[in-house]
Write a protein that binds this DNA or RNA. Structure first.
Length: 214
DNA sequence: AAAAACTTCAACCGCGGGGCA
DNA sequence: GTGCCCCGCGGTTGAAGTTTT
C-alpha cells in the first residue's frame, strides 16, 4: 500500500483516502442516473477525481442503500462460521448468503473474531481458496456426493466427523463462540468414544458433551 | 489523566477472469 | 490466438476509536 504518500491527497490525478460527503453525493447521483457498473466512467461524467476501482468499492461497501448497518447478529455469525468452514476465505461467496452484508465486512469480522483459530480444516480451506473456482466447485460437488452416500451408510460417523471438524476451528476460542455453534452440533452425543444421535435437543446436556469432546 | 496496547473498519493494492475487438 | 480493458476478489494496511495499564 502506498498510503505513506498520497493518502488523502492526489496520486496520478486520482484522489485517495477517506471519502468526503460531497464525493459520496456525486457517486450516489451517478448510480441513480446510470446504474451500477462502468465505474471508470464515473470520473468523466461526475468530475469526481476517484478511480473506477475506488468508486466501485465505495458504493459496494458503504453507499449501497440495501446495506445493513450495525453489528453482526448471532444468527449471521452462525452462517459465517458455517460457510467459512465450508468455503474457506471465499468472502464474496459467503456474503451472498447474508443480504445487506459485504464481503469486506464479513472478512473484517472474521479476521477480528476468529483469525487466531488454528485448525487443519481452516488451513485446508485456505489452500482451497487459492484454487480456480471451477475446480473448487467440482471438488465441492464431489465431496457433497460422497458425504451423502456415506450418510446413508453410516449416519452416526458422518455426524461425528462434521462435529469434530466444526469444533476443531474453535480450539482456542471462548464459551460465547461455542454457544453460537451449538445449534449446528447439538444432535450428536459422545459418550466415552461412542456416539449416538440425540433426537431430543437438550441444550445444557449437549453443550457439555460437545465442549468436553476430545 | 495519560500513555500504551488493542480493536475495528474503510480503503488500498495486486492479481486473475471474462468479454470483446 | 492475443492484447486490452473492465470488473471483482482476497489480502493487507493504517487511521481512528476504544480499552487497559
Amino acid at each position: 500500500m502506498d498510503s505513506h504518500f498520497g493518502w488523502g491527497g492526489v496520486v496520478d490525478g486520482w484522489r485517495k483516502g477517506p471519502w468526503t460527503s460531497q464525493e459520496d453525493k456525486l457517486l450516489c447521483e451517478y448510480v441513480n442516473i446510470h446504474g451500477e457498473g462502468r465505474w471508470n466512467c464515473v470520473s468523466n461524467i461526475t468530475g469526481l477525481r476517484r478511480s473506477g476501482k475506488s468508486c466501485r468499492l465505495r458504493w459496494v461497501n458503504y453507499l449501497r442503500p440495501d446495506l445493513k448497518r450495525g453489528k453482526i447478529t448471532p444468527q449471521e455469525e452462525n452462517i459465517i462460521l458455517e460457510l467459512h468452514a465450508r468455503w474457506g476465505n471465499r468472502w464474496s461467496t459467503i456474503a451472498r448468503s447474508l443480504p445487506g452484508r459485504t464481503d469486506n465486512e464479513i472478512k473484517n469480522y472474521w479476521r477480528t473474531h476468529f483469525k487466531n483459530a488454528k485448525s487443519s480444516s481452516t488451513k485446508i480451506n485456505l489452500q482451497r481458496s487459492k484454487l480456480p473456482k471451477s475446480l473448487i466447485q467440482q471438488e465441492q460437488n464431489h465431496e457433497d456426493d460422497e458425504m451423502m452416500k456415506e450418510a446413508v451408510i453410516n449416519p452416526q460417523q458422518v455426524l461425528l466427523e462434521q462435529t469434530m471438524a466444526t469444533q476443531d476451528i474453535f480450539e482456542d476460542d471462548d464459551d460465547e463462540m461455542m454457544k453460537c455453534m451449538c445449534p449446528f452440533t447439538s444432535f450428536v452425543q459422545v459418550n466415552g468414544g461412542s456416539t449416538s444421535i440425540n433426537e431430543d435437543w437438550n441444550e445444557d446436556e449437549n453443550w457439555t458433551r460437545l465442549w468436553n469432546l476430545e
